[in-house]
């Protein structure tokens, strides 16, 4: 199961790169709202990858 989570974190990083690419592409097509949407998605996906890698301690 732990390896599945590791694989998920890698997929999330790749997904973030894909989302950022969609955002920049949308920016070039003058679709600003969609660009912002994909850039926010990319940021959230990266954040999720970090949290999977370094989960918060339950003692906090």
């Amino acid at each position: 199961m732990s390896k599945v989570i590791d694989a998920l974190s890698i997929l999330l990083v790749l997904g973030a790169a894909f989302a950022f690419s969609l955002g920049v592409a949308a920016l070039g097509e003058r679709r600003d709202l969609i660009a912002i949407f994909w850039l926010v998605i990319g940021g959230l996906v990266l954040r999720a990858a970090v949290e999977l890698l370094r989960p918060r301690s339950s003692s906090r």
Binding site: V4, I5, V45, A48, A49, E51, L52, R54, P55, R56
Partner: peptide, 15 residues
């Protein structure tokens, strides 16, 4: 693994 998923719950929920 469940704890790791829980740690990422907030960004995944926002996603």
């Amino acid at each position: 693994p469940g704890d790791r998923l829980n740690a990422a719950a907030v960004p995944l929920a926002l996603l």
